[in-house]
Amino acid sequence: MSVDPVVEIGFGNERSNTRKLNTGEFLVKWGLISIAVSYLGLVLFFPVLNVVYVAFAKGIEPALEVFKNQDFFSAAQLTLLVAVVSIPLNTVFGLCAAWVIARNRFRGRTLLISIIDLPFSISPVVAGLMIVLLYGKNGWFGPFLEQINLQIVFAIPGVVLASTFVTMPFVAREVIPILEEVGTSEEESARTLGANDWQIFSRITVPNIRWGLLYGVLLTNARAMGEFGAVSVVSGSLAGKTQTLPLFIEEAYKNYQSQEAFTASLILGLLALVTLVLKEILERFGHTSQIKV
């Protein structure tokens, strides 16, 4: 790279990307942009486009064929059920944990933060293994569960449990920084005006953290619906019974039913797209609400 010794320097408030670039800098800029975008193309854009392409390669009608498949429907139902159970559980937990961490100073606070983050670092397969060792037939609670005739592993409760495990930290993670940023002054004013705990929580705290909370819920949903590793350990992948959409996709792909696999992938992929679009929108809202405060 040839460097022009006489560099144009932006004084004052001028920003580097608004000032005029000399030829060398111009080449560097577009060179770097093209390398970065090509890399993303290779790793992200081509594979994502490929999902759409394979799903519709034979036309629209074969693509819609999957909707006649009963296993697909029960997989979609189970996937929704997983989200419906794990979101409220992890939201209640996330709010409580965020309040404990952001509003209290106590010994072991950093340790608690690390513990809450643990499910992100533990391999999903290890998470599934833990559930099997605890609730499986030969697990610690196995005999007891057999007595009360409740099957968790290789049944729907196990699938729900595994998905809840891997999505545990999302809400807490998103809410903690916001709670810390808004501070306690509004909550204290409400208390001096005679509000009780519930009133403070529902009328002051929740409105303040709503965008972060919503984003946390969104991430929980995306991950819960898409979880594969932990679920495949505990589910046994019985078609029509304990199969979620990701497991359905894997089985269809392995059985060379790539049409069904890719249509189902497209549907799950749209979930990812919606998540990203909503994220952009929420960030904008979050930004404006911060300016108001």
Partner: peptide, 19 residues
């Protein structure tokens, strides 16, 4: 491009795998 960087977080790994 900025938004697309998050795709691997949002895309289910089974979908990533087959594509």
């Amino acid at each position: 491009v900025d938004a697309a960087v998050d795709l691997p977080f949002a895309l289910p790994t089974a979908v990533a795998g087959i594509t």
